[in-house]
Structure formats: C-alpha cells, structure tokens
Amino acid sequence: DENEERIRAFALYKGIDPEKARELWERGEINKDDEEKAWREYK
C-alpha cells in the first residue's frame, strides 16, 4: 500500500533501516517536508 511505499522511500532517502523508519512513522516523528521530498524523489 502507499504508506508502505512512503515508509520505504523515506528510509532510502534518510539512509536508515525501513523498520526504524516504520517506528518513526508510527510515533509521528517523521518530518512531513522530508517525507514529501523523499516521496517525490522516489517516484
């Protein structure tokens, strides 16, 4: 689903483990601007 892809995109963008990215996502600790930037680059 799209959230999974967004988490993966963010992990790649930040160079972090996707599981770590998922934890940040679930806790609401992902910066929305960074997340959008990562998503645009990923697509």
Rank of each mutant, 00 (worst) to 15 (best):
W39I: 05
A21P: 00
D33M: 09
R6W: 13
G15I: 01
W25Y: 14
I16G: 00
K37Y: 06
R40P: 02
I16F: 03
Y13E: 04
R6N: 02
G28H: 04
D33S: 08
Y13V: 03
D17A: 12
D34M: 07
E29M: 12
Y13G: 01
A21Q: 00
A11E: 02
W25G: 00
E23A: 10
W39R: 04
P18E: 14
E23R: 08
A21R: 00
D34N: 02
E41T: 08
G15W: 01
P18I: 15
R8C: 15
R27P: 00
I7H: 01
I16Y: 03
E41W: 15
E2T: 13
E4R: 07
K20F: 13
D34Q: 05
A9D: 03
I30D: 01
K20Y: 14
R6S: 03
R6Y: 06
I30V: 12
L24D: 00
R6Q: 02
I16R: 00
R40A: 14
W25N: 01
E35K: 09
D1H: 12
E26T: 07
K14D: 01
N3D: 13
L24P: 00
R40T: 12
G28E: 04
N3Y: 15
E4M: 11
Y42R: 03
K37D: 08
K37R: 14
E26N: 10
A38F: 10
R6G: 01
K32P: 14
E36P: 00
K32E: 11
K20M: 13
E19N: 09
K32L: 10
A38S: 11
W25L: 09
R27N: 13
E35H: 05
L24H: 03
R6H: 09
E4W: 12
Y13R: 02
K43V: 13
D1N: 12
R27I: 06
E41H: 11
G15M: 06
R8M: 14
D33G: 08
G15F: 01
P18M: 15
N31F: 05
N31Y: 05
K32V: 10
E35L: 15
R27T: 09
E35Y: 15
P18V: 15
G15S: 06
E35D: 09
R22Y: 06
R6T: 03
W39S: 02
R27Y: 04
A11W: 02
D33T: 08
E26A: 11
A21S: 03
W39Q: 04
N31C: 14
K14N: 08
E5A: 11
E19G: 10
I7M: 05
G15A: 05
